[in-house]
């Protein structure tokens, strides 16, 4: 008898637990953003981005946890360790953005020194002539500066001249800025699900 009850109780409990698991967390909102960054590989500021606001962060806030990552030309820096006061980390997974349903528990990398950065160009784009193309199916998974999770894909990259026109790959003109179209989903609750 006791046994039967305890099985029943366990079953009820299990049902309740699995019900609770099926309760979706606050869905992460998916947004796209045209992230226009400094086009010089060596000179000038990085441009900073925050997942929480889905927008750029002023360079004056670079010594804060208001930003998660920043870019200049094609270089990423991550807000932690060598690059910032935050606790951000990143990894690139070979799964299309839509299919990344949860952020991995471990495996996040950060910039260990100025020259040892978490993300290398060859991880996420191919270089063809003077232009580079983000590789489809590569998804960046971030732990943000404040320990939330976000996923991101770079959809396109266009080199722009000083007046904002797209430069052709064969143009001898040096890009003044690079326009990245990014898509990202941010999980504000601190959960790893997207």
């Amino acid at each position: 008898m006791n046994m039967k009850y305890s099985i029943l109780a366990a079953a009820v409990l299990l049902f309740a637990v699995s019900c609770k698991k099926e309760d979706k967390p606050t869905p992460a909102t998916v947004a796209t953003f045209d992230f226009v960054v400094n086009g010089s590989p060596t000179q000038g500021n990085y441009d900073f981005f925050s997942f929480a606001t889905g927008a750029k962060v002023a360079a004056t806030d670079s010594n804060s946890t208001k930003w998660d990552f920043a870019m200049r030309f094609e270089t990423f820096i991550i807000n932690s360790n060598a690059s910032g006061p935050g606790n951000a980390g990143v990894q690139i997974v070979n799964t299309p953005f839509d299919n990344v349903t949860a952020a991995p528990e471990t495996g996040y990398k950060y910039d260990t020194t100025v020259s040892q950065k978490a993300i290398k160009g060859s991880d996420w784009y191919v270089y063809a002539g003077r232009s580079f193309s983000p590789i489809a199916g590569k998804t960046f998974v971030f732990r943000t500066a404040t320990n939330k999770f976000a996923k991101l894909e770079v959809i396109s990259a266009d080199a722009l001249d000083a007046s904002g026109n797209i430069l052709s790959p064969t143009s001898p003109v040096r890009p003044a800025s690079i326009k990245y179209k990014i898509r990202f989903a941010y999980q504000p609750g601190g959960k790893r699900d997207f």
Binding site: P96, F97, D98, G137, K138, E153, S156, R183
Partner: peptide, 15 residues
């Protein structure tokens, strides 16, 4: 099954 691509510029990546 290692190559992904998009159908339109801002679309989703698929195999």
């Amino acid at each position: 099954g290692k190559v992904f691509g998009r159908d339109i510029l801002n679309g989703s990546a698929r195999l």
